[in-house]
């Protein structure tokens, strides 16, 4: 130990916020929402392990539900260690545009959830939806797409069943390959764990890139998704992209 160790303050950890944006419209009622609740609860310990074992990054969680309106689960992002997932209930419309506007407001240092850029990693944002937006989503998305935090973020969308509009979800992720379609609760559980853990790992790692490759973390995350869908037997039935064939949809029959 030298003079610097004695005289210099302790190094803080940078923060990465993992956002869950959850459609809680009426069509999510029943096993869809209950499976999602259980799956996220079961995933949080794995995300906590990533945070605990990463000397440089501290992972925080934030959850936004949207139906006829929007509501944050907690007023500020919380450390994953102390985060308790409150079971969401479904009912109402699908105001996706309002959710985009709300997310844009919070992706801000002065009046939102973000901290100084030097102390932050790009956030990871996971969107869940099973249907069509019932409001004008384009306006909210337009604002969101010009938000510098959103541009840098890792974005993944989970389409729950074939009724979800994969094209709109791809507009959100800016990549068709980051849209994943699941058709039963087992697939949903597995993909939630995989996506949450992978996005947290990629988002909380350090790399410096040139301006010509603005979404490298997003691309890195997509590469990991592609690899997993190809090689992980548990995820082989999950489909990526927007041109997915209609499959056996357990949710279509009321699940």
């Amino acid at each position: 130990m030298g003079v610097f160790d004695e005289k210099v303050d302790v190094v803080p950890r940078r923060t990465m916020v993992l956002f869950f944006i959850v459609d809680t419209s009426g069509s999510m009622e029943g096993e869809k929402i209950s499976s999602l609740n259980v799956a996220i609860q079961e995933t949080l310990p794995y995300v906590n392990d990533i945070s605990a074992s990463n000397a440089d990054a501290q992972i925080k969680i934030s959850a936004l539900e949207f139906s006829s309106g929007t509501e944050w689960m907690y007023p500020q992002p919380m450390d994953v260690e102390g985060f308790v997932w409150r079971d969401l209930e479904a009912g109402g419309l699908t105001c996706l545009g309002e959710a985009f506007t709300e997310l844009n407001d919070k992706l801000s240092v002065s009046h939102g959830f973000m901290q100084e850029a030097a102390g932050s990693f790009a956030p990871a944002i996971i969107l869940f939806s099973d249907g069509e937006p019932t409001d004008d989503y384009k306006r909210g998305l337009e604002k969101l797409k010009n938000n510098q935090w959103f541009k840098s973020a890792i974005k993944v969308a989970i389409a729950i069943g074939d009724d979800a509009n994969q094209n709109i979800l791809a507009e959100f992720t800016n990549s068709k390959e980051a849209v994943l379609t699941v058709r039963n609760k087992e697939q949903l559980k597995k993909i939630i764990k995989f996506v949450s853990v992978t996005a947290s790992q990629v988002a909380s790692s350090h790399s410096s890139v040139g301006k010509d490759a603005p979404e490298t973390k997003q691309e890195e995350n997509i590469e990991k998704i592609k690899e997993a869908l190809k090689n992980d037997k548990e995820l082989q039935d999950v489909e990526s992209g927007t041109d997915v064939a209609k499959g056996t949809n357990a949710w279509g029959d009321g699940w």
Partner: peptide
């Protein structure tokens, strides 16, 4: 244009 892990560069 320098934000988070994005930076301007001599290689641009």
């Amino acid at each position: 244009n320098c934000f988070l892990n994005m930076t301007t560069s001599l290689c641009a």
